[in-house]
């Protein structure tokens, strides 16, 4: 499948943390043929395994998280308004006037209500909290009570589009474009003679505390793991210390306090040998990714982390480049071949 089309298909899947199972059928239908075995877990993870066919082969697990941040209906108000609770760390600053899908019995559109500048008090610049915001549906309270009861999930409504120079923009690039890099790597490895089984783990619940990665990896029990996630890339006036990576510079490999240094070193050596563009970042402690929990799943799994440079994280306009996705796919394929 063409890369942009695949990225668009995957990022437009709605799989809010804790409710990822709604995507299982679609994933199976679209990508099931790429694996020899598939299993899913109660914690929202979808795992596909491709065997190398060699006896007692070791295995490498590539993890990207399937879940995205979103909202859950917590109260139905008069006049067609809904109050929601946040799932994962939403940036409330950008929510005002955002368009959303409300995944009720019938999927309906809504918009976060906002106060127009004309009506705002002059000192109205304070930070907005989700608890002060409403989603406007334009429907009756009776309809909402029936169709979108408490517990209904809400996602951003954005579609994924192309910008110039191979840039793409959309919702939940974090972390579905990383799923894309894994699938691309599986394509690159199609027909290759490997010494390891390769495992694609699309884990649930990352945004609510890494729950899908730790549980699915417990079941898959791999010998090596690589987490693929997103990382903030440079924008003007950003603190360089935190956002030194460049969009288009290739995957960002992390030397961190909670990933395996020997395995990461090996990964970088492979990329240098194969001339695959990449960037390196040093992170002192936890990385805020599944790498953190994969490393300590079971009796410990040597884990590396490679991230897709991303702008506007946790908004409905997350921006990445197709070139980085291609380079990360190549990196994962090269790593699998090196084992």
């Amino acid at each position: 499948m063409e890369l942009f089309k695949r990225a668009k298909t995957i990022t437009e899947i709605c799989a809010v943390s804790g409710r990822e199972h709604v995507a299982f059928e679609e994933l199976k239908e679209r990508f099931g043929h790429m694996f020899d075995e598939i299993f899913t877990t109660p914690t929202g993870s979808f795992v596909g395994i491709r065997r190398c066919g060699k006896p007692n082969a070791k295995s490498i697990l590539f993890d990207a998280h399937l879940d995205e941040i979103g909202f859950m209906v917590k109260k139905i108000c008069d006049g067609g308004f809904l109050k929601v609770s946040g799932i994962g760390g939403t940036d409330t600053k950008v929510l005002s006037a955002a368009e959303v899908w409300i995944h009720g019995k019938e999927k309906i559109a809504g918009v976060f209500a906002s106060t127009p500048p004309h009506l705002r008090e002059s000192d109205d610049n304070e930070k907005l909290f989700l608890n002060d915001m409403y989603i406007d549906t334009g429907m009756s309270k009776e309809y909402l009570e029936e169709n979108t009861p408490i517990g209904t999930v809400v996602t951003y409504k954005t579609t994924t589009e192309k910008l110039l120079n191979g840039h793409i923009v959309g919702k939940s690039m974090d972390d579905k474009i990383s799923m894309c890099t894994i699938l691309e790597a599986f394509d690159l490895l199609d027909g290759e003679d490997l010494n390891v089984d390769i495992i694609a783990q699309f884990s649930g619940g990352e945004e609510i505390g890494y729950i899908g990665a730790t549980t699915a990896a417990f079941k898959a029990a791999p010998d090596y793991a690589v987490a693929i996630d997103v990382t903030n890339s440079y924008i003007p006036e950003a603190p360089i210390r935190k956002m030194g990576n460049k969009l288009g510079g290739g995957g960002v490999i992390s030397y961190s306090g909670t990933t395996s240094r020997p395995f990461t070193k090996h990964f970088i050596e492979v990329l240098n040998k194969e001339n695959i563009p990449h960037q390196i970042v040093g992170e002192p402690g936890r990385t805020g990714t599944n790498a953190h929990v994969l490393q300590i799943a079971r009796d410990g799994i040597p884990t590396a982390l490679i991230s897709v440079p991303l702008k506007n994280m946790h908004t409905q306009a997350e921006t990445a480049t197709l070139g980085d996705l291609e380079n990360i796919a190549k990196a994962l394929a090269a790593l699998a071949k090196s084992l």
Partner: peptide, 17 residues
């Protein structure tokens, strides 16, 4: 919206429940 329960630890133990 504020507070946790044993539900979590049981959900994430082993391969999850």
């Amino acid at each position: 919206e504020g507070g946790g329960t044993d539900t979590r630890s049981m959900q994430v133990t082993g391969s999850g429940s």
